[in-house]
Design a protein around this nucleic acid. Sequence first.
RNA 1: GGCGCCAUGGUCAAGCGGUUAAGACAUCACCCUUUCACGGUGGUAUCACGGGUUCGAUUCCCGUUGGCGUCACCA
Length: 481
Amino acid sequence: MKVRTRFAPSPTGYMHIGNLRTALYAYLIAKHDNGDFLLRIEDTDKNREVEGAIDIIYNSLKLAGLSHDEGPDIGGPVGPYVQSERVKSGIYMEYAKKLVEKGEAYYCFCDEERLSKLKKTVNGEEISFYDKHCLSLSKEEVEANLKAGKPFVIRQNNPTTGTTTFNDDLYGDITVDNSELDDMVLIKSDGYPTYNFANVVDDHLMNITHVVRGNEYLSSAPKYNRLYDAFGWDIPKYIHCPPITDETHHKLSKRHGAASFEDMINLGLLPECIVNFVALLGWSPASNDEIFDLQKMTELFDYKRISKSPAVLDMTKLKWMNGKYIETMPKDKYLEMAMPYVEKSITKSIDKKKIAICVKTRIEVFPDIPEKIKFFNEVDADYDKNLYANEKNKLTKEESLSILKEILPILEETSDFSNDNLFATLKEYGKSKEFKVGKLMWPIRIALSGLENTPAGATEIASIIGKDETLKRLKDAINSF
RNA sequence: GGCGCCAUGGUCAAGCGGUUAAGACAUCACCCUUUCACGGUGGUAUCACGGGUUCGAUUCCCGUUGGCGUCACCA
C-alpha cells in the first residue's frame, strides 16, 4: 500500500515550530517511501478564523521545501481538502448519524448550564466528564426535540467498563480503562464536526496510512480507535511526536522569542537550516551526520528512530548551524543575501563586496552583519584603550604605541595599499624588530577598528578603508594614548 | 486529583545485557597561523533514586521521585 501522510493544521495565523516539525516528519515518512504527502486545512472552529492564515501555511511549507502532492490549492482525488468545505457536503453529519444508528453515538441536548454543573475544579484546572444524561432519552424524545428545533450535539457513546488498547508505532501498546473515556462531542451544535471526529473521518476517506501528530493527542487516541472500530475501518499507524520545549521545559511560547517559523525567519535564520535543525530535535539518523538538506534527510529518515522524550530547543546551536550554512553557501547566493545588510550599514564609498566576503565566516545570521562591520565607517571613539596591551602577544601599551609611531611614516610612504603589499611591507618592518607578525599586527588592527575581534586582519582593513583613512586612524590612535 | 507518557552531561543525542558510555553545541586549556577570528588538539561533564531478574545491568521488570501531557460544542 502506498504510504500517505498528511499535515493537517488549523489556520491559527502562525506556524508553530513544533507544528513545522510535525509537518516535516509527515513529509519525510511519505517521501522516504515515495508516498504522498497531503495538506488538509482543519478549519472547523468558526470562532477562531484568522484572515490570511491559510496563506501563512502555504508560505511556510513552501519556504521549508515541503511540497505537498494534494491540497486545497492543487486539488487531488480525495478533496475537498478544507474541512469547512467538506462540512457543506454533509459528510460528517452523515457519518455521525451512522454511528447513532449503531448505538455508538447519541444526540445530546444538554445546555451550557447543565454542562457547567458537571464541571469541577482540581488544582485550579477545570475538568469535566459527561454523565451520559441524554443517552437515556427515548427515540421519541429525541425526535420531538429535533422537531422542536432544539440545539443538539452528537456524542460518542463509550463503554464504561473494560479497557481499550491502541497502538502507537513509537510508544507501543497503550491500554486505558474505558471508564476514562469521555463521551466526546462529535458534531457541534453549529453542525460542524469537532477536530477529533473530522480527523478520523477525513484520515479514513483520504486513505491516510500514517497519522503523524503531536504527543498531546496521545490521551485521546483510544477514543479514536473506538471510532474506527465502530465504523469498521482500518486503523492507520499512529506516530505521536514528543514536544519541543524551551529551556524551562515548557511548551515553546511566544514569550520565548522564537516559537514560530516566522519568528525564526525574522531572526535571520535560513529556512533550510531551521528545517535541518528542527528535524534533529527528536530524531537522529543512524549515522553521525548533522548537516544535511531535505533530500539527504529524506534518504536517511527512519521514523522508528524518532525519540519519545521531549527536546529543548537550543538557540545557541541553531545559530551555530546557521553560521555553518552561511559559511558553505555559494558566493553568489551569499552576496545576494548579505549585500543588502552591507549596503545599509556602510555609508562610505569603499569596497562593500570585499567587506561582505570578510564577514562570511564570521556571522551566524545575516542581521549580525551591521554590528560587525560598522567600524569601517568610523572607529568608536570610546573603545577600550587597554586593548593595546595583549598578554598573548606579550605586548604592552607602550610597545603598541611605539609600533604605531614607527609604522606611521612607513605607511605614509607606501602608495600601494593592496593587502599583499601592505602585508609584505609591514612584515619587513617587523622582521627588523624581530616581532612576530601577530604581535606587530595587533596594535594596528586595534587602531584601525577599535575592536578586539574584527572580520578581517589589520592589513585587509587598511586596504579596504584606503590610505587616507588608515593614516588618519593611526594618528588618532597615537594621540589617544 | 484521575489517567497517560517520558527520564543518558548545561543542551541535542548514540546506545538496544558485557563499551575506556559515541558524536555535536556550549565551556575550559593548549597549539597553529599572512595578523584577531577561523581552524586543530585535548580536557571537564551524563546513565534520577530504590528494589528485583541475571554470572553480569545505562540497557529487562517493579516501585519511588521528578517532568510533561490530558480531562472543552479548541485544535
